[in-house]
């Protein structure tokens, strides 16, 4: 998929663990792992909003479009 999820980069910048972030945004670590590894097929606006709020970033910092 040409959409790349840079969540792990953002998490490393903010020095936050998967478990902590999952707990803060209210999703399971398994789902966060799906999101981080790029296996997710869609992201809810509500989830994206919470991630941006917790990591203090913009959606564009997490999602990137690259032509195949």
């Amino acid at each position: 998929m040409p959409i790349i999820v840079n969540l792990d980069v953002m998490m490393a910048k903010r020095k936050i663990s998967s478990m902590e972030l999952a707990e803060r945004i209210g999703i399971t670590t398994a789902n966060l792992s799906i999101l981080k590894t790029g296996k997710a097929k869609a992201v809810r606006f509500s989830t994206l909003e919470k991630i941006c709020e917790e990591l203090d970033c913009q959606p564009g910092d997490i999602l990137e479009f690259k032509k195949e």
Binding site: A40, A42, V43, T47
Partner: peptide
Amino acid sequence: KSENDFTI
């Protein structure tokens, strides 16, 4: 179903 399961 798969799309739904992989919607986070």
